[in-house]
Design a protein around this nucleic acid. Structure first.
Ligand SMILES: [Mn+2]
Ligand SMILES: [Mn+2]
Ligand SMILES: [Zn+2]
Ligand SMILES: [Zn+2]
Lengths: 150, 150
DNA sequence: CCCTAGTCAGGAATGATTCCTACATAGCAT
DNA sequence: ATGCTATGTAGGAATCATTCCTGACTAGGG
């Protein structure tokens, strides 16, 4: 969702995050996509408008926004970290072929709880659900190249 | 669960994995613990019996066993990969303090499905559930040092 | 408008994992 | 049993996302 700079600034101030050109650009890029980009994806996007931007600033900014609760880090396996501008509670559906990450909003999943017998005395604070599979185009691609495992 | 070398050998042959001293030692170490050790943990354990063992062999062996379906790789966040000798379907409970990973066996969780409305045309093959919290001793430690965020 | 804690850019460092290569060996076929 | 060869092993070098360092810059409270 495309956000006005003033709305971004307001959110930053509400979360005690200093407003800078770099941060605004990075957060804006993240907020207007649902594609869960990596730090480097964001660096490439933002560099077009701000060629002086350092990759390092992207990493640092993302860590600041993450710690402030404005951004979520999504780790899938050992691939590079992906970032999510949607901080409301939700889960993900991941394509094993192309790595795309789709949002899953489902109240039943959000309410999932561990039975106390399984909790082992833990103070359980949250959970994460990931579904894995193949998206439409990856499924297609696999059918077209049956050489590797049917 | 402690396994006899002959049982390990049988499993290897069933999965077309060549039997070597190194592989047997690595798989034995993994099978008799429930602690989800990292590659380096396993290297340290196995090196005691086989000082010539290379760290590289541990990585290579784990990839062979993983591809053969004898071992599962468990990635938690961006920490180093952890390995699981239990390949039956189950989920995990993770301590945010010490990083320990406990098994959660729960048929309801295993049966979890994505509603077709949410599936976005994906061919969904599996899912993963992770619960996060603090174990008994980490909870204790946090209480004892209330200096950082109560 | 000043001051300074916080931020930025660029480069070096890190560290888990992977790649490379020469030697060793498991296990099939003589 | 013996030899052959595809595969595995050890150790070192390379990779590469991420973090660390450092010196210049600036947001924003006073
Ligand atoms: Mn998301
Ligand atoms: Mn497990
Ligand atoms: Zn796909
Ligand atoms: Zn703990």
């Amino acid at each position: 969702m495309k956000l006005h700079p003033q709305e971004i600034e307001a959110r930053f101030r509400r979360h005690a995050v200093r407003v800078t050109r770099q941060r605004t650009a990075i957060y804006a890029a993240l907020a207007e996509t649902t594609s869960h980009p990596s730090a480097d994806d964001l660096y490439q996007m933002v560099k077009r408008q701000q060629p002086m931007m350092s990759r390092n600033t992207v990493y640092y900014t993302l860590s600041v926004l993450r710690d402030a609760g404005l951004v979520r880090e999504v780790n899938v396996g050992h691939d590079m970290a992906r970032y999510d501008g949607n901080v409301s509670m939700h889960h993900h559906l991941i394509c094993l072929g192309c790595g795309q990450i789709m949002d899953v909003m489902d109240d039943d999943l959000n309410r999932l709880q561990l039975s106390s017998g399984q909790a082992r005395g833990f103070d359980v604070l949250g959970h994460r659900v990931e579904f894995h599979g193949y998206c439409v185009s990856c499924r297609q691609a696999r059918r077209d190249v049956p050489s590797r495992r049917g």
